[in-house]
Design a binder for these strands. Sequence first.
DNA 1: AGGTATTCACATGAAACTATTCTCTGAGTTAGG
DNA 2: TAACTCAGAGAATAGTTTCATGTGAATACCTGT
Length: 399
Amino acid sequence: MSGINNFFENYLKQDSFFRDKNVLLSSYMPENVIYREEQMSEAANILAPALRNEKPSNLFIYGKTGTGKTLSMKSIVNSMKEIAVKNNIALKPIYVNCKLKRVADTEYRLISQLIKSFGRDVPSTGLPTDEIYNIFYKLLDQEKQVILLILDEIDQLTKKIGDEVLYNLTRINAELKNSQICLIGISNNLIFAENLDPRVKSSLSEEDIIFPPYNALQIQEILRNRSNSAFNDGTVQTGVIEKCSAYAAREHGDVRRAIDLLRVAGEIAERSGSRQVEITHLDAAERKVESDKLISAAMNQPRQFKLVLFAIMLISPQKRQFFTGEIYEIYGTLCKKSNLNILTQRRVSDILAELDMLGIINAKIISKGRYGRTREINLSLEEGIIIKLKEMLEKELQL
DNA sequence: AGGTATTCACATGAAACTATTCTCTGAGTTAGG
DNA sequence: TAACTCAGAGAATAGTTTCATGTGAATACCTGT
């Protein structure tokens, strides 16, 4: 029997750590959401009129990432839908995540996504935006119903394309005869509403609910619940859950991250042939999650972007700090070498700002007095990640 | 010495442009009756 | 005459360019002592 066959045989025989890995995926819906009872009953109160075919107040949900906003709202809406079906009430919940690239991150795409949720497809481009709106209106008004429209990560949407869409959406009700639409916005950004058009702001947040971060104990409990159904008994070393939650609590109570970490730790442990998920695996997971995030962020950028990054990687071994101008020069020669046209300094400046946002570089704007004002940059990555990234870039850019 | 004014090397903003992808429209072409 | 093809016009979008304006402090340039 060949080696690879052997491997698969052993793989099967080895009893897996995981009882049900899905429990640790972000798409998993637990039966009940713990420690969010207060917020959920408040939201339920606000939304309940929908079941009597009245339009509930628009609702706005604030809270940092991983505080159970999306989960809670989905859970509420699901149970409302269940009851609606049982009692023959026309209620249609729609959930859209506005951050998804190429899905719902522009006005056109958002509306077309909504249309899709009614079971109709529209072209992804080529039509004027009002056309799309018209189709949407018509679909909405086909039958008498209340629509619960959940816009997740709504702050990302307005950051990118402004608040006009929201204004349009809030005004839709005036034009509809049969249906009514209730907007539920979910935002990670606590001060999101402040730079919104006041008209939009007042009509969008008729009611709002804040989701506070979980504390360490709560995270621990949630994690324990999940891990009990995700892992087989006795496969998680004592202390792992505690450390994992402590880590998440430090990062403003982000449970999603903690769960992610636990899953990756499990995977690493499984692959390493260990009998238990140990704390060392957790540490390894932390590093892996971090570096995967950075690498995929970098690799998903346009070609010129990568070239700039590569230029930075070329100087960084020689100097700890460097400036925009130096990078631009190196980038220029790189471009010539690989026969690409050179971007303007303006653009490169923006790219550097984006790299800073992604956490790949560390840039600080300083003034060198008589010698100008510029970004003082240093590469803020671990050695391992740098080498890996550099290899990938080299390969892709064929340098 | 102390106080202004300059000046550098970019940063930051706004608007406009370009290439690509996709639709719709209507003229011209083709095939069938 | 109905069906098909195909170029042209128009949209949306991402990535840029162009033009214009802003900026913090090390230096240059005064000023009066």
